[in-house]
Design a protein around this nucleic acid. Structure first.
Length: 480
DNA sequence: ATGTCC
């Protein structure tokens, strides 16, 4: 089915309300992106989301939008806390898939001679690949329940990381209201030995250098300088989060029928926010989100140890500290002003990043003057970006921006393009060291499989919903 | 994204 789209300006497109839609769709994209989008089904998904009960404001799509389960990846949708719904498809299978950025005092020339060894250490210390698990850290169920309730704080209590780390994580590294009793035995079982593992797909661990600073004053507040070595951790809630999503999709199909919610697509299955099923999903989702926060905190500990092993200096001496940690897949209650009225909304961000403005109380105090750091990974061969949130974005997108480059080739198509090529050698020729658990994943993750993230963040900046601070270039990449 | 089909 063809979706009607009206251009608003150079980077905004409206999908006007029609049929069962309760609101407009609003897509952020340049013309080339929109031309490509018209050939796939992601815009239909933006329209479908607009049919859900209690949606407030438009059904939003960021410039990295692509087709997802029910809701598009790159989608943002806010729902009224009384009339609205919550949908597992609006969060995604990898609950609290997210990105953490670490800084250091190291300059690139200090690290380059040790890059091979550093990549080896990171690859050895952080299990990667599908089904990756830790033999050295098998939790008891009692410990796991604490992880699910406390998130990153549990890891800090075990002596790995600091209070300062926790202050530099979205929500302080813990979503309130997590109830482990709402998880299936299977979800709990899958999490027992996966804490501190990277996983597969687009997840990665990367040593990078600051390649370009666009906003020196903002960069200084973030602790970034040109030529500096940084580390990005991109992973989520692993098999546990997948299982939570899968379990609740079944529950939500029944709930949607029970509450008479008409679904444009079964994958949009959902329940009223104030129903038992809705509340239970949010409490189970919080468990998975906290598992992901703990996962990134534990991986941070192993990154610090890896640097210590290879460079012979303590992580404290290297000032290897957390700049910020963002969620890319989550639904959260937030206060927003809509048409002049302050409302409590459940904002679904699926493949989208919260980007709160300067002055917002949920932005850590040290960044309150510049806005929330927004971490946007690109692909493993090019670069990633650091942005901050804006006041205009808070008003227009519920304080949200893109989350990454967005795929242009399916995994299958990417493998076909990569066939016969030596991707590791191609990256080496560009000064990038690669360590990967599986060749298949590397083929799926080639640069050509993704949009140029520079174009994506330029749309965000032009639209005024985010402000570009710095670009990071990969030096060593660990993949699943 | 995912012990890529309990």
């Amino acid at each position: 089915m063809v979706v009607k789209v009206q251009q608003i300006d150079a980077c905004r497109w409206r999908i006007p309300r029609e049929g069962d839609m309760r609101t407009d769709g609003l897509v952020f994209a340049n013309r080339a992106m929109m031309d490509a989008l018209k050939k796939e089904h992601a815009l239909e998904q933006v329209r479908n989301v607009a049919t859900l009960p209690g949606i407030v404001g438009p059904s939003l799509a960021m410039p990295d939008i692509h087709w997802g389960y029910g809701f598009p990846i790159g989608g943002v949708a806010a729902f009224d806390d009384q009339q609205g719904v919550v949908s597992p498809g609006g969060v995604g299978y990898d609950i609290n898939c997210g990105v953490r950025l670490l800084r250091s005092d190291l300059e690139v020339q200090q690290v380059r001679p040790h890059l091979q060894k550093l990549a080896d250490a990171l690859f050895r210390n952080v299990p990667s690949g599908i089904g990756s698990h830790r033999r050295d850290l098998k939790l008891t169920v009692a410990q796991e329940r604490k992880v699910l309730q406390q998130g990153a704080r549990w890891v800090v209590k075990q002596g790995m990381g600091s209070e300062r780390d926790l202050r530099h994580i979205e929500e302080g590294g813990c979503i309130e209201g997590a109830d482990p009793d709402l998880l299936s035995d299977r979800a709990l079982e899958r999490g027992l030995d996966q804490l501190g593992t990277l996983g597969s797909g687009n997840h990665f661990l990367e040593v990078q250098m600051v390649e370009e600073i666009r906003e020196p004053q903002l960069a200084q507040v973030l602790g970034l300088f040109p030529g500096q070595v940084t580390v990005t951790i991109h992973t989520g809630s692993r098999g546990l989060g997948y299982q939570v999503c899968d379990d609740y999709l079944r529950i939500m199909l029944r709930a949607a029928a029970k509450y008479g919610i008409k679904l444009a697509d079964r994958q949009l299955c959902c329940a009223p926010l104030n129903s038992p099923a809705g509340r239970q999903y949010l409490a189970a989702m919080a468990c998975a989100a906290n598992f992901a926060f703990a996962n990134r905190q534990l991986i941070t500990a192993w990154v610090r140890e890896s640097f210590e092993q290879v460079l012979g200096q303590s992580a404290e001496a290297l000032r290897l500290s957390v700049i910020y940690d963002v969620c890319h897949n989550i639904a959260k209650y937030e206060q927003h002003v809509v048409d002049g009225v302050r409302r409590r909304l459940c904002v679904h961000r699926k493949g989208a990043t919260r980007a709160f403005p300067p002055g917002h109380p949920d932005v850590p105090e040290c960044y309150r003057g510049i806005g929330q750091p927004v971490l946007i990974p690109g692909d493993m061969g090019r670069y990633s970006y650091v942005l901050v949130g804006t006041e205009a974005g808070f008003g227009e997108t519920f304080g949200s921006t893109c989350h990454g480059a967005g795929r242009v080739l399916s995994r299958h198509a990417a493998k076909k393009v990569a066939r016969g090529r030596r991707i590791e050698e191609e990256l080496a020729a560009r000064g990038i060291v690669l360590r990967a658990a599986g060749r298949g994943t590397v083929a799926e993750e080639i640069s050509e499989a993704y949009k140029d993230v520079m174009e994506v963040v330029e749309v965000v900046q032009k639209a005024g919903i985010g402000r570009i601070v710095a670009r990071l270039r990969p030096l060593a990449v660990v993949k699943g």
